[in-house]
């Protein structure tokens, strides 16, 4: 058994454990119906988190995700008003997300500024742009959106794998291929593991950095498209704080914030864990919603401590 799968297995084990706990607490909890709902409800944020996984793997951070989700929704809704087909608008926004991310990556690398600040600027910029366009929620009228969000593959046991979840799983497949089966992906791991070494080994750091943030922008725009189609609207406040949830999903998924270690597949389960916790607490009905954040916080904390010790044991052996 390869030790690189350990964090992923830990994440899956936690996911299963929480699912079982939910099943013990409530009847009907352990069903494909609940699973399908969690997948569909969290698809937008998990999709965006796939992009964040690349950014964090490279040792960076992307805070512009939530604003991108909101901005994409608002623009699609307004283009819908102008008579655009939603798919065309979505394609436009995916391109925009890619370019916006690339621009952030370019600034980060050329000016050698911390990604935190650059993407924080991106966060303000895009959120501000949302409010410039609209102050209120704008419904998307085109019948395609309603038809699309109604699509789904029935699961055994009465659940449905909704279209948003399907798009998310396709995005996951793409992410896995990019991360593990392309040179770009290998370069991301190299830069995150040891930037100096990667440079000396000849990794094209600038091109890769631009690519990483472009990918991050693309995935968050895709998250925005999913959200807009799922809710059939564009709302300027949509996705507020989503960047932090995405980062939490990535970390719970076993990716190290220091970069170089982690897997895209882990992020799916990390995001699902957060979704499960929310669902369990909502199922209870009497518990305050604040408990969602408290439990998520505790879990995140435990995970980071676990990771720290895991990496500690890895580094100790090689240290001089």
């Amino acid at each position: 058994m390869n030790e690189k799968f350990l964090p992923l297995l830990a994440t899956i084990a936690v996911f299963v454990a929480i699912f079982v706990i939910g099943g013990l607490l409530y009847n009907n909890f352990m069903s494909t119906q609940v699973l399908g709902d969690i997948l569909a409800d969290n698809a937008f944020i998990i999709t965006a988190a796939f992009g964040t996984t690349f950014v964090i793997l490279s040792g960076g951070i992307d805070l512009s995700i939530g604003s991108m989700i909101g901005f994409v929704g608002v623009v699609i809704a307004n283009l819908d008003l102008a008579g655009w087909h939603p798919l065309l608008a979505a394609a436009l926004m995916l391109g925009f997300g890619f370019l916006f991310g690339a621009l952030q990556g370019l600034i980060i690398d050329i000016c050698d500024i911390q990604p935190f600040i650059v993407t924080l600027a991106g966060l303000f910029l895009l959120r501000g742009a949302c409010f410039m366009i609209n102050l209120d929620s704008v419904p998307i009228q085109n019948g395609f959106v309603g038809w699309f969000s109604g699509l789904g593959i029935p699961l055994p046991g009465g659940g449905v794998l909704r279209s948003s979840a399907i798009v998310m799983l396709l995005a996951l497949a793409g992410g896995i291929v990019i991360a593990h089966f392309t040179r770009f992906g290998a370069n991301v791991y190299a830069i995150g593991g040891d930037r100096t070494s990667a440079t000396l080994m000849g990794v094209p750091v600038r091109r890769t950095t631009v690519g990483i943030y472009a990918l991050g922008g693309f995935y968050s725009a895709l998250g925005g498209v999913i959200y807009a189609f799922y809710t059939s609207s564009g709302y300027p406040l949509a996705g507020s704080g989503a960047e932090l949830t995405a980062i939490a999903s990535v970390v719970l998924g076993g990716t190290m914030l220091t970069g170089g270690v982690g897997m895209v597949a882990g992020t799916l389960f990390g995001g699902m864990i957060l979704g499960l916790i929310a669902t369990i607490i909502i199922f209870n009905g009497t518990l305050n919603g604040a408990w969602i954040m408290i439990v998520s916080g505790v879990l995140l904390f435990v995970f980071i401590v676990l990771q720290r010790s895991l990496v500690g044991s890895l580094r100790m052996r090689g240290a001089a």
Binding site: A186, Y189, G193, M201, G260
Partner: peptide, 12 residues
């Protein structure tokens, strides 16, 4: 200093 990436596998 070994200028490789410690977090990556030997193959990588």
């Amino acid at each position: 200093e070994v200028n490789l990436v410690p977090t990556m596998s030997v193959t990588k």
